[in-house]
Design a protein around this nucleic acid. Structure first.
Length: 459
RNA sequence: GCGUCGGUGGUGGAGUGGUCUAUCACAACAGACUGUAAAUCUGUCGCCUCCGGGCUUCGAAGGUUCGAAUCCUUCCCGACGCACCA
């Protein structure tokens, strides 16, 4: 009985939310069954986007399941690769980001991860790919530029002591941290070229998005083509540092890159990693994938009310996917929901409310979820004033426009003018709503409603 | 290196001397309606305004012109072709 239950769990582990699972001879699965505590799972993290949303959560929640079985999860912070820009999706070259920013982003990221993952030393670790792609020379050399920089700093600050974030100090720091982490390997140009010997041009351009670009006569830059190889080298490095790299997880958009990792490991005579890629969660607008730049995401740090509301705004067609990818609702039940929805005998709104509640429960618990549900019903179904509203201070004689503009409630005064003309701004009181029609009205304390869902309290 | 074509608002993509803040679509925002922040319909969609208007945008910098996104020069970036060949 127990065995069949375990098998069921195992099956779900490799199917729920999964796009593809590559584990040719079942090596990974066998190891998971026999020595889960020896397994190292790699997960690449983008240090430019510190907010974790439900799309990432799909992967993270799966990682947690592996942790529960005793596997170690290693976050790979792609500080170098972030500067390259994964060619997936947009063709834009990403802006350079500096070390401080990465550090800050990673701190926020790792704090949020607490909500889902365990962080014991045995089950969790992280590393950055600058640990093996950057050498000290990259930071302090060429010597000339450092001298120039020193000179400049001294002029700027007028002292002999350099500021804390001075590049020279930074490089010393860097040596320290690097020593602490005890990284063995450095990838030099020679290593890199040796690996590239085994990677053909055809292999790299075969991916759809490059083919599309070629067809559309759009540019493909060399550094973008190298991206999968570099990501593959990461796996190789993790193997060296942690003694193993058994599985890499990521979205289906990462599938190709992760497979290249297998090849790199193979050519270095290592057991290639298994690859588990996840279906992409669509955004709240129902199309494309959830992403911060498209602003169609639900962050796992969103307030319960917000989280609930955002999920309520997904189109009906996304309900089932969300159930599968974002909740613990058993798969048979999800299937049932799919059927019911198809027939149309249930109001999709009710299913969506259940969905929204279940997701909030995962991150905030039952009581908060109930509160959020109640708040939603009150605000949007009964049209009452929500509980917590952003507050903004005013001084006597201030115009309402200025108060709101200075607090960045909207981006320009023209926007305000438009909203007023459209009758979108209302002052709320005991008696009901009063539409504001004069855009030069003086600010008075009270609750204001802008559009359907923005509330501002002036105090 | 030579040649051809191209670089436009959040995105895609029109416009090749005045009527251009720039057609259109998507996104976004608002109003109506509803089953909800879904769908649909309507409107708005550079900034500032004493509502008369003023100011700023079409890769960058100059120039021609009464007037330039549109013409010229130089530069930057890309696609394609030719040449060169380590």
């Amino acid at each position: 009985m127990k065995i069949s239950k375990d098998k069921e769990m195992m099956d779900e582990l490799f199917t729920r939310g999964v796009g593809q699972f590559i584990d040719p001879d079942g090596i990974f699965r066998k190891k998971l069954e026999n020595n889960p505590e020896k397994i190292v799972i790699k997960f690449g993290v983008d240090p430019t986007r510190p907010d974790i949303h439900l799309g990432h959560a799909v992967v993270l929640r799966k990682l947690r399941q592996f942790q529960n079985m005793g596997c170690k999860v290693v976050f790979l912070i792609g500080d170098i690769t972030a500067q390259i820009g994964d060619p997936t999706g947009k063709s834009k070259i990403r802006p350079e980001i500096n070390i401080d920013e990465i550090q800050k982003n990673m701190e926020t990221y790792l704090n949020q991860v607490d909500k889902i993952l365990l962080k014991d030393e045995k089950l969790f670790s992280w590393t950055m790919n600058s640990d093996w792609f950057v050498s000290i020379n990259d930071i302090i050399a060429p010597v000339r530029s450092v001298d120039i920089f020193k000179e400049y700093s001294q002029k700027q600050y007028g002292t002999e002591t350099l500021p804390e974030n001075d590049i020279y100090n930074k490089s010393l720091n860097w040596v320290e941290t690097r020593r602490q982490r005890n990284v063995i390997k450095n990838y030099t140009l020679i290593n890199f070229l040796a690996i590239l010997r085994h990677v053909s041009h055809g292999r790299l351009v075969e991916r759809d998005m490059f083919q599309d670009r070629i067809k559309n006569r759009e540019p493909i830059f060399m550094h973008e083509m190298m991206y999968p190889v570099i990501q593959g080298i990461d796996s190789d490095a993790i193997y060296d540092i942690y003694g193993s790299c058994d599985l890499e997880v990521g979205g289906t958009d990462q599938h190709f890159n992760m497979l290249v990792g297998r090849e790199v490991m193979e050519m270095n005579n290592k057991e290639p990693q298994a690859v588990l890629s996840f279906k992409l969660l669509e955004g709240t607008d129902g199309n494309a994938k959830m992403s911060k730049s498209l602003d169609n995401y639900v962050a796992i740090t969103d307030e319960p009310n917000d989280m609930y509301g955002k999920i309520m705004s997904i189109p009906d067609s996304s309900i089932c996917n969300y159930f599968e990818l974002c909740t613990f609702t058993p798969l048979e039940e999800v299937e049932e929901i799919r059927k019911i929805l198809g027939v149309g005998e249930v109001n999709p709104k009710d299913l969506k409310m259940r969905l929204a509640r279940e997701v909030v429960v995962i991150y905030y618990g039952e009581s908060k979820a109930d509160e959020a549900q109640e708040n939603f019903i009150n605000t949007f179904q009964k049209k009452e004033i929500p509980d917590d509203i952003e507050e903004v201070k005013y001084k006597d004689g201030d115009l309402l426009v200025d108060v709101l503009f200075e607090n960045k409630v909207f981006a320009s005064k023209s926007e305000w003018r438009r909203l007023v003309e459209e009758g979108a701004v209302k002052m709320l009181s005991e008696e009901g709503e009063t539409k504001i029609t004069d855009f030069k009205i003086l600010a008075t304390p009270g609750v204001y409603k802008i559009g359907k869902r923005r509330f501002i309290k002036i105090v």
